[in-house]
Design a protein around this nucleic acid. Structure first.
Length: 937
RNA sequence: GGGUCGCUAGCUCAGUUGGCUAGAGCGUCUCGUUUACACCGAGAAAGUCGGGGGUUCGAGUCCCUCGCGACCCACCA
């Protein structure tokens, strides 16, 4: 690759990624790891490296990466590359999620377009079709992850329908069953009548809507309801036990006039009734309302279903049968009116209505047989782990949020009525609907066990049931080794009144865990993961489950730390959504500005857990930064010479740069040898060392944006603006090379493509930057560092003075008296300040000084014995600035004096601080003196 | 009804255990084509840290209170 004037990411990124991938540097443990596991394990002297690991939250395999994926993967990639540089054994394990329902929605829409529906195919046909569909999209998604520059181990890629996933998921299901934590229950579930599937509680969106509140005559009462059409399913009327108005009716059976004729219901008393709402009387429809269902359970009420799975009225609705719910509501209201049963209507009543999070259809509570997990024991264990700080949260407040969630978590419905997903490995006795067995032969529709015929459950698992087990599945970690499952079929009483469950076949193959003589997968050492990083939206659906399942399956938390990034909003701070059409595609941003620019732009200026608008200007700034770096490298390459590599590589230096030595040993680079000759050299090394330390500390605390600020300022302000400029007058090519390499390493985690592209364009080594490690810190001399800082201060003052004299164009001369610093750095100062000349005082000037005649402007601020040869007239023009400066300094002095005069401050503040205040005061007073002299006052 | 978070320069946001001159990017203004870079260089302007009160030698930072905004949770028929 050549150094063109402008860095063009589009031309290099794909090529760079191909180099990385072919080299094996992204493999868990890196290239060294391959040697470790392939080579002689007993080889002495090989210390196991400290492990760092994370898993990719499996992005949906049904489409394109969105900006949240891009952000999340970039953050993890920063960490992975950072820890590789530090010499850790790094595993970044990628995944793809079949995303059951999400994918299904996309596929069903595709079916719709060709005029088909799910009912035109068998379940197995559908499964195969979606499988092909997903494989195609998965490939697409994997390309996009590469375009982002993500350094994950592709050889460890896991898809959520891979055999190893299904195996472990079944193992968990069986174990839960054996432990009595799973049950099949007829319960009210959230049901979408468009998608024909049930949902977990968190998949339902509630929204405030105007739903008229109808007051109707109901036997001896008047009661209020928003759903008059469910009247046919009423099996009771409830009042509050303390409600004096209705006490006499409690326990009685009353007759109610209905639109289909009179019917009888019982009056019950229940605390759940709000006396102040409506008339304090509520009709109970157990099959279609969660509250009513609970009351019905408490009072043993009969249940009548009046809405079917298509959202239409059942036969129980009489002449309203087959009518869609909303139409039935209208018709029933009309009928009520005609029969003079409607008292009044509150049209403005606002109610919270549940909607399907995907299609926005109103969710219908539906009475169905489903598989549920008893979450209480799992949640309690997870809570305990949280309270024991086994998982550290960033931001810390998320811990309490999760604890609150665990505390109120209700049993989890894991059945989904869609064909795409992991089939639930359960079969039901065709002759006994309560006889369920566990069996993994899900490809069979019917099986025979003990002479009895069983039919498989057609439902699939909620996606989160499998992705909740992700960390130990991806690392092949042994599960249920410490609590072996009972392998004898047995009856598990689950809860009174619920169907009994019979545990079927013993586990066919036990998990690989702990079996003597079985080699554990090399990936097991990466569990628990070092960190889990994801968006705040995944706290409940995913993180909460991973912690519960992790503890349940492995007795360990699945990760030690969790970092939540905030949601990325659109450029106006609004939530991105397809329906709003404000979705920003990361791939488009990358195509325009490059992946590094995207990464820098999206990570900069953000803190943990805080939702924030996407900033295009941030990306532009990232792009500009990459270009700056590129041009710094161009300069360095030019300064050190094209043949510089030969000095390091010897005769191999002329290798074709495209022919990377993928197997080679590490070669020496400029970083291996360094000689700090100039003050600027010492100074820059002190800055670089500091930056490297800061970045390590900041990334350790997941303060990504601050780390970027450090490397950004380091590279641009310190290296480019000062060090490189200084090098232009006093050259030390070796030092330039050293500094560039240091910057590249410092920046590589954040801008991997640009740094690698530069590394490959330089002729110093055949190795990959992605495979480099940090070496030792270079030693610098603090005196030299201070010397250069003095030079900076002087140069800044000269620039300030010149910029603040109006119409000042000419190049000035700097004249110095007895000032060794200037004497020794004369050429450097001349270059940095763009001066005509830097020279000592002439004899004549010394005499003039003695006579207090004008020889120029004394540089008072930096405190040097030096003058700029500026005429009196111009000094006069500058005077206003000088006087303003005097005022500032006077103010500062006054403040310091006041503080030091405060006895309490002197007595109570730390001695260091007080000392410092005194020192600053002294310096300011000296400065004031100089400024006043300069003004001739 | 509960809970969380936010309010810092024109804009978008940083600012860990309280420490004295509150930072960045973008934008604005003034200069400038000096052999890496105009996706650039030099310089500058710009903040009573939402209001009020308290604790403290010292508060953007801790406490109370008020205001505005966002989000989450919850069974209001």
């Amino acid at each position: 690759m050549r150094f063109d004037k402008v860095y063009e990411p589009q031309a290099t990124e794909a090529k760079i990624y191909a180099l990385w991938e072919a080299s094996g540097v992204f493999k868990a443990g890196g290239r060294a790891h391959e040697q470790e596991i392939d080579g002689d394990k007993s080889k002495p002297g090989v210390q196991p490296r400290e492990v760092w690991s994370t898993v990719m939250p499996p992005p949906n395999a049904n489409g394109n990466l969105h900006i949240g994926h891009g952000f999340e993967m970039s953050l993890k990639d920063v960490l992975a590359r950072h820890y590789r540089l530090l010499g850790r054994d790094v595993a970044y394990l990628p995944g793809a999620d079949h995303a059951g329902f999400e994918t299904w929605v996309v596929y069903e829409r595709a079916l719709e377009e060709i005029g088909k529906t799910r009912f035109d195919f068998t379940r197995d046909e559908l499964y195969q079709q979606v499988w092909d569909f997903v494989q195609k999209n998965r490939y697409n998604m994997e390309i996009q992850i590469r375009q982002l520059g993500i350094s994950c181990d592709w050889s460890a890629m896991t898809f959520t329908l891979d055999p190893k996933v299904v195996k472990t998921v079944y193992e968990t299901f069986r174990q839960l069953w054996a432990d009595g934590l799973i049950y099949r229950g007829k319960k009210l579930v959230n049901y979408c009548t468009k998608h024909h599937t049930s949902f977990a509680d968190i998949e339902v969106n509630y929204r405030e809507e105007k739903t008229p509140l109808y007051y109707m005559k109901y036997g001896p009462f008047v009661l209020a309801t928003t759903r008059p059409e469910t009247k046919f399913g009423d099996t009771a009327v409830a009042v509050h036990p303390d409600d004096e108005r209705y006490k006499k009716y409690v326990g009685q059976e009353i007759e109610v006039q209905g639109v289909n004729g009179p019917f009888k219901v019982i009056v019950i008393a229940d605390d759940a009734v709000d006396m102040t709402f409506g008339t304090g009387v509520v009709k109970i429809t157990p099959a279609h309302d969660f509250n009513d269902w609970e009351m019905a359970e408490r009072h043993n009420l009969p249940v009548v279903q009046v809405v079917d799975k298509d959202g239409r009225m059942t036969a129980a609705a009489g002449r309203f049968e087959h009518m869609p719910v909303l139409e039935a509501r209208k018709e029933v209201v009309k009928a009520l009116k005609e029969m003079d049963l409607l008292v009044r209507v509150d049209e403005d009543y606002v109610n919270r209505v549940p909607h399907c999070y995907k299609c926005d259809e109103v969710i219908e509570p539906m009475l169905m047989d489903q598989w549920f997990i008893k979450v209480r024991p799992l949640a309690e264990r997870a809570s305990k782990a949280l309270m024991d700080n086994e998982v550290v949260f960033y931001p810390a407040g998320k811990k309490n949020e999760l604890l609150a969630y665990y505390n109120e978590l209700r049993d989890w419905n894991i059945s989904r009525q869609i064909p795409w997903g992991i089939p639930i490995p359960a079969f039901c006795n065709v002759d006994d609907p309560e006889d369920w067995i566990f069996d993994t032969r899900v490809e069979e529709e019917y099986i025979e066990v003990d002479g009895k015929k069983y039919k498989r459950d057609e439902d699939t698992f909620d996606t989160w049931f499998s992705s909740g087990q992700w960390p130990f599945i991806t690392t092949d970690y042994p599960v249920y080794t410490k609590t072996p499952a009972s392998d004898t079929p047995s009856v598990h009483p689950v809860a009174t009144g619920e169907p009994r469950l019979v545990l079927g076949l013993p586990p066919s193959e036990s998990s690989s865990a702990g079996d003597s003589g079985v080699d554990l997968s090399p990936l097991t050492k990466y569990y628990p993961n070092s960190v889990m990083e994801c968006g705040t939206d995944l706290l409940r659906p995913w993180v909460a489950k991973m912690i519960m399942f992790g503890l349940y399956a492995t007795e360990e938390v699945p990760f030690r730390e969790v970092y939540f990034h905030g949601m990325v909003q659109d450029e106006h701070g609004k939530k991105m959504s397809k329906s709003k059409g404000n979705v920003i595609s990361p791939m488009e941003v990358i195509a325009e500005y490059g992946a590094d620019a995207f990464r820098l732009g999206i990570i900069a200026n953000r803190s943990a857990g805080q939702a924030q608008a996407f900033s295009r200007s941030g990306v532009v700034s990232g792009r500009n930064f990459c270009n700056k770096l590129w041009n710094m490298a161009r300069f360095v390459q030019h300064a050190v010479g094209e043949d510089y590599g030969e000095q390091w590589l010897g005769e191999d230096a002329n290798n074709d740069r495209d022919d990377i030595d993928l197997q080679g040993e590490h070669e020496e680079t400029p970083l291996s040898k360094v000689e700090l000759k100039t003050p600027a050299g010492h100074w820059v090394v002190s800055c670089l060392n500091q930056a490297r330390e800061d970045v390590e500390r900041l990334l350790g605390e997941y303060r990504f944006a601050e780390a970027i600020e450090v490397v950004y300022g380091m590279t641009w302000t310190k290296v480019a603006d000062w060090f490189i400029e200084a090098e232009k007058t006093v050259q030390n090519p070796q030092m330039l090379a050293y500094v560039l390499e240091f910057c590249l390493k410092l920046l590589h985690p954040f801008a991997p493509f640009a740094t690698e592209a530069i590394w490959q364009s330089l002729s110093w080594t055949d190795d990959l930057l992605a495979d480099e490690k940090w070496g030792d810190y270079a030693i610098y001399d603090i005196k030299k560092v201070e010397e250069f800082e003095q030079v900076i201060k002087l140069v800044e003052e000269i620039r300030f003075v010149e910029a603040n004299i109006p119409e000042h164009k000419q190049k000035d001369r700097l004249i110095y008296g007895d000032d060794p610093l200037i004497k020794e750095n004369a050429e450097l100062i001349r270059g940095l300040a763009k001066l005509e000349e830097v020279r000592p005082l002439s004899e004549k000037e010394e005499e003039q000084l003695a006579e207090k005649e004008h020889i120029g402007l004394r540089l008072a601020n930096s405190g040097r014995k030096a003058w700029l040869d500026i005429s009196e007239k111009e000094v006069e023009k500058y005077g206003a600035n000088l006087r303003a400066r005097v005022e500032d300094v006077r103010e500062e002095i006054a403040q310091l004096e006041k503080r030091l005069a405060n006895e309490a401050y002197v007595a109570k503040a730390p001695a260091e601080l007080v000392e410092e205040s005194r020192a600053v005061l002294g310096a300011k007073q000296k400065l004031l003196g100089r400024l006043l002299r300069e003004l001739g006052e």
